[in-house]
């Protein structure tokens, strides 16, 4: 029904359809204008985010006290500067096992049995803004929050 009526309309009143409000030229123009505005909005947002990310990831932590969390609770607290011998910490929980390597001033996830291995690929813990996170095993390694700067900044980011 609809189709036949369309074809007759197509042939008989072509000008009407071309000029119909659905495909009005003024609307086509406004698409382009809107698209341009959105492109600018997203570009600005992208540049801001990139800047924020570069800024965040280049800060090095003043404190060397590291906290290891499992299932949201603190498991170990280590001052990396006081570590003399390289050692491993094995965390086994209900979700899986993670092996953490600690040496003087450095900490990293040595191995994990999580499916994605993103925590291992993260490498060394650099600053408090990019903690080592193993979401499948719910393990987080991060620098201790010094009460002044970091908390305030965390609030601002959120």
């Amino acid at each position: 029904m609809k189709k036949s009526s369309t074809s007759t309309r197509n042939s008989d009143k072509q000008n009407d359809i071309i000029g119909s409000d659905l495909y009005d030229c003024s609307q086509t123009v406004s698409y382009k204008v809107k698209n341009r505005i959105w492109i600018i909005v997203f570009s600005v947002l992208a540049v801001l985010c990139l800047g924020a990310w570069l800024f965040i990831s280049n800060i090095s932590s003043p404190s060397k006290i590291v906290e290891i969390y499992q299932n949201g609770s603190l498991v170990e607290k280590i001052d990396l500067n006081s570590v003399t011998n390289e050692r491993e910490i094995t965390l086994s929980g209900e979700h899986g096992t993670n092996i953490i390597l600690i040496s003087n001033g450095h900490i990293k996830m040595k191995s994990a049995d999580c499916p994605d291995k993103l925590c291992v690929k993260h490498g060394e813990l650099k600053n408090s803004y990019s903690p080592i996170v193993c979401l499948p095993n719910k393990v987080v390694i991060k620098f201790e929050n010094s009460s002044d700067g970091v908390d305030a900044k965390a609030g601002a980011v959120r």
Partner: peptide, 27 residues
């Protein structure tokens, strides 16, 4: 959800890079 699950608000630092990746992937 990740912040809620791990009880670690510090993960929020990933917000800028996640927004950036969302813009690229979404486009």
């Amino acid at each position: 959800a990740a912040i809620f699950m791990t009880q670690t608000p510090a993960i929020a630092y990933y917000l800028p890079v996640l927004i950036l990746s969302g813009i690229i992937a979404g486009a």
